[in-house]
Design a protein around this nucleic acid. Sequence first.
DNA 1: ATGCCGGTTGGACCATGGTCCAGGGTCAAG
DNA 2: CTTGACCCTGGACCATGGTCCAACCGGCAT
Lengths: 159, 159
Amino acid sequence: MGNFKIGELAAAAGVGRDTIRYYERMGLLREPARTAAGYRLYDATDLERVNFIRSAQELGFTLEQARKLLALRASDTAHAQAVLDITLAKIADAEARLERLSDIRDMLRMLADECPGEVPVSDCPILAFLTARRKDQQHNKKLQAAQDERSSLAKGVLS
Amino acid sequence: MGNFKIGELAAAAGVGRDTIRYYERMGLLREPARTAAGYRLYDATDLERVNFIRSAQELGFTLEQARKLLALRASDTAHAQAVLDITLAKIADAEARLERLSDIRDMLRMLADECPGEVPVSDCPILAFLTARRKDQQHNKKLQAAQDERSSLAKGVLS
DNA sequence: ATGCCGGTTGGACCATGGTCCAGGGTCAAG
DNA sequence: CTTGACCCTGGACCATGGTCCAACCGGCAT
């Protein structure tokens, strides 16, 4: 039957060999059967699992979450609610990121719009904005609102 | 005059001591003067630099970009255009991330909306979606458009 | 039998932005 | 003089998702 070796599985799934072994170490793939020579032997269900994992990744799930989703899928007592919970958490996470990231974009856009380009750096409003911080910021009306905003921009937004 | 030791600088800037030393290693801060005992000695301009770096980070700049911005600021020949270029690239980057991330959110929301919760995992449309992949996907009309969409969702969206 | 491709292992390494630790030295107060 | 708070260095370690490496073994063609 359709048994394949690691390179074949990797090629079929569109990943590297090392990625397959990595998934195995991470508990995402079962320990496969082996040939007498120690070669890993996979079948169609393994390929399907790798494809599942890649799909989950494309939707923004981490490998750890993919592992949980696979476990839920394999359970015959679990309810879809558990999957939904993970998904809803992911949505909330995405929305939080979206909000912070769009705040940043707005801020950058505003600064970019004010920057004439053809001036010496000493007149660059972007550098001025980065320089004026936590003190002496009672002048510059245009950026004041933005500065209030900025305080709410936490770390890790593009992480 | 206002010379401070590393702990004082760190406290004033709201970062850890190790972060200051890290910035120094990364070339973000100059090598400071030292006391006879080898203690680093900082002044107000160092604090201002750290504050600048933190501000840049809050706007989504990496430390490497912050380093470049600092170099531009210190230059007396550079033009604001260079800063603007970095900023525009950052905006473009933010917009690309926003788009991919909002695609993902939409996709997840669609799947979540279809999941009734109170069914066994075998009937979970989210798992079904992750399972049906790259083959046998000519059925299921509701998700078809979404699947087309999905193909364009590259990696690293929430990274 | 020789070459070559592909498999095996364990471990190092990448980026990012730090954090923490051991094993010292310094400095001011009590 | 001792205690405690601070400082020094170099290096290990964290998460994330892999990638690459050396050094070795298996299997097939020529």
